[in-house]
């Protein structure tokens, strides 16, 4: 009995630790992004709340919490209210299968440094990622606003398209690791990180990941120059905050997946494993920010061309090549 209880406690501790880390990181990623964008554009970025704007996330949080929560007239209330939660929850839940260290042995018991290691972890991640689209599409639809609706439709189309490339690009990794479990995939990279083995898969995955997170240059669902703010045009206060949080958590998830699939997960010399994972995540996210500062938004047809006519064929070719090698 107490063993069960202990296991439960350990699980709770892991969840708490991961959630805290993810949330704090999300908050500060916002700040880092704004600061970095500032510097990329030869300006300062936020520097008024605390030194170097260190308290900006706090100020933003307070502001979002205190703002009035508006529901537009004619909106589908229930769906409108639930949509942001869908986006944020699915993003957060994906972290459940990301391993952040090797098994730890405490008092003779082995504790896996992952919240839960399911053997189809990879499918779980993709399933949740697909569910996240509902938040965007429904939020956009329920707002009773043309901008939000267009944003929602664009979001759904784009995320479903890129999910394919994302999934296909990872097939060679699975073939190499021989498992759907993220823990096994990390373990399979004990020798070489897959980025060296599968550079093409890495490229396709990274580009699709950015599209999945709806970030520039793939931010058509919220293209502010055309659609106001796209699917979350009508949201305010903390509900808008949830969309925002979802986006940044999503970035981290994608960073973590890149790290797990291609960069050897938590593996690395000297530093403790969770730190290595963190470093890799941040590294990927910083790269996304740089991309945002550099590339212009794609047009819708370009976006679809890139997905269907370039990335998916590339991924398929890659599977064939890898298959040939694995079989050989």
């Amino acid at each position: 009995m107490w063993i069960w209880l202990l296991g439960y406690l350990v699980l709770m501790a892991k969840i708490t630790a991961v959630l805290t880390a993810v949330m704090v990181l999300a908050a500060y990623l916002v700040l880092v992004e704004r600061k970095l964008l500032g510097r990329f554009q030869v300006r300062y970025g936020p520097n008024r709340a605390g030194i170097y704007g260190i308290l900006q996330p706090v100020a933003d949080g307070i502001k979002l919490l205190l703002k009035e929560d508006l529901v537009p007239e004619g909106a589908d209330r229930a769906i409108f209210l639930a949509a942001p939660a869908v986006v944020a929850t699915t993003a957060l839940m994906m972290f459940a299968v990301v391993p952040f260290g090797p098994r730890l042995t405490i008092g003779g018991r082995e504790i896996p440094m992952v919240i839960t290691d399911i053997n189809v972890g990879l499918l779980y991640v993709f399933a949740l990622s697909s569910l996240g689209v509902y938040g965007v599409a429904l939020g956009g639809w329920a707002s009773n606003s043309k901008y939000a609706l267009l944003g929602g439709i664009r979001g759904a189309a784009q995320m479903i398209s890129y999910e394919l490339a994302l999934g296909l690009s990872i097939v060679p990794v699975v073939m190499l690791a021989g498992s759907f479990s993220l823990v096994d995939i990390v373990n399979a990279q004990a020798g070489l990180p897959f980025i060296l083995v599968q550079p093409l898969a890495f490229g396709v995955f990274l580009i699709s990941a950015m599209a999945e997170t709806k970030r520039i240059p793939f931010d058509l669902p919220e293209a502010e120059t055309e659609l106001g703010a796209g699917y979350h045009t009508e949201y305010s206060g903390m509900r808008f905050g949830l969309f925002f949080l979802g986006e940044y958590v999503h970035m981290q998830v994608m960073g973590a997946l890149v790290a797990v699939f291609f960069l050897g997960g938590w593996r690395g010399p000297v530093l403790p494993p969770p730190v290595w994972l963190l470093v890799k995540i941040v590294f990927v996210v910083l790269f996304m920010i740089w991309v945002r500062a550099t590339l212009p938004r794609l047009r819708y047809d370009q976006l679809m061309n890139l997905g269907w006519k370039v990335l998916i064929p590339l991924a398929l070719v890659n599977i064939l090549i890898t298959g040939a090698f694995v079989a050989a």
């Binding site: 970095l36 510097r39 554009q41 030869v42 300062y44 740089w290 550099t294």
Partner: peptide
């Protein structure tokens, strides 16, 4: 070239 341009800005003094 785009990445180089933006990347280089990181080391330029802001004009703000």
């Amino acid at each position: 070239a785009g990445f180089y341009t933006t990347g280089r800005h990181l080391f330029v003094r802001p004009v703000t």
